[in-house]
């Protein structure tokens, strides 16, 4: 946990600590635009091998756009900028053929809504085996065995029956496990979990999360946990990036973030959520999430921030490094530390 960062290109990086010499995935200054709308202005983070990295934010903060940009899964109208390095290889602007080889065996993607993320007219088995047929040229019978093993690893009692079932015949939790299996079956090194539990009943959320993380850590795969739920972050993540208005407002290890948030947005988020042992009303964040058009040249949170100063609206605050991460604020919170 204390090896020095080898990043040279990043001018703001000082003596940053990192988990490994070369992170598995390095996102730098990633931007995504759809015409005039800027979904992501500038997002940077690293994910190490076996690490669980949280990306948290309100809807519209650019979480899903960031996640999809990593594997190039955006509509052709999207304009990408910045850099996504996977094991040192640039994925932004990579050829379609190369991206196809990355998707699945290198980076797996777990979709949010398990009902719509599975093909309704084919069995679970056919869909899982297909992934292995594409990437490993594995014959169907053998692929189905691998799939059955993976399903039992995901605590599905009767994998053979599940493989023969169609998505509509399964319960929500089962379907979500099938979707997780589809993302994991080609043994990726990173899993992007896009709001995996949001569509599930609260009773099964925790179970599905535990299964996902259990299987990932058994395989040493890193996880990018995309969620709007700080509870999920607290339970599962090692480090976390708080996204707002298409920028990383704050990045920190989970304990640091919950104990001593630096960015006022993080602080406001924490205050708006129920915490154990506290009573009284939660404090909602005034106003609603921002939509960015064109180039972002102000702090996106300024309009809703109680600590805002005139300077906040003059330029996008630069990244300030902290021992455990970074934040973008010129008037950060200090008190809680």
């Amino acid at each position: 946990m204390t090896m020095p960062d080898t990043s040279l290109s990043d001018t703001t990086a000082t003596s940053r600590t990192d988990r490994s010499a070369t992170p598995l995935l390095r996102v730098r200054d990633l931007s995504v635009r759809f015409g005039a709308v800027t979904a992501v202005s500038s997002v940077s983070f690293d994910v190490g091998k076996g690490e669980v990295f949280g990306v948290v934010g309100e809807s519209g903060a650019g979480k899903s756009a960031t996640a999809r940009a990593i594997i190039g899964l955006l509509p052709p109208t999207a304009r990408l900028g910045g850099s996504v390095l996977y094991k040192g290889e640039e994925l932004v602007g990579a050829s379609k053929a190369r991206l196809r080889k990355v998707r699945g065996p290198e980076i797996g993607y777990v979709f949010q809504d398990a009902l719509t993320a599975l093909d309704p007219v084919r069995t679970i088995g056919a869909q899982l085996a297909e992934v292995l047929a594409v990437h490993r040229r594995m014959p169907a019978r053998q692929a189905l065995e691998v799939a059955a093993d993976l399903l039992s690893e995901l605590k599905i009692n009767d994998p053979k029956r599940t493989l023969n079932a169609y998505p509509h015949q399964l319960s929500g939790g089962m379907r979500q496990r099938a979707v997780i299996a589809a993302a994991l079956i080609a043994d990726p090194e990173i899993i992007i979990a896009d709001e995996v539990t949001s569509a599930l009943d609260v009773t099964v959320q925790r179970k599905v999360l535990d299964l996902l993380l259990g299987v990932c850590s058994a395989r040493g795969a890193g996880v990018i946990m995309i969620t709007h739920d700080l509870g999920v972050v607290a339970q599962t993540c090692d480090r976390v990036a708080v996204l707002y208005g298409g920028i990383v407002a704050e990045e920190a290890d989970v304990i640091g973030l919950f104990d001593a948030p630096r960015h006022p947005y993080t602080g406001a988020l924490l205050r708006s959520m129920p915490r154990m042992g506290e009573s009284g009303a939660f404090v909602p964040i005034p106003g609603s999430a921002i939509q960015v058009f064109g180039t972002l040249n102000t702090c996106p949170f300024a309009d809703r921030c109680e600590r805002a100063q005139p300077r906040c609206r003059e330029a996008l605050p630069a990244e300030t490094r902290t021992p455990g991460g970074s934040y973008r604020c010129i008037n950060p919170l200090e008190g809680m530390a």
């Binding site: 594997i71 080889k101 979709f111 599975l118 093909d119 297909e130 594409v134 080609a186």
Partner: peptide, 23 residues
């Protein structure tokens, strides 16, 4: 969503279109 899910699993565009037709 499942069409994007196919792409996220690394299926070729041809295979994706085939599954679209099947649906």
């Amino acid at each position: 969503d499942f069409i994007d899910a196919f792409r996220a699993r690394g299926l070729s565009e041809r295979a994706v279109v085939r599954h679209m037709l099947h649906n």
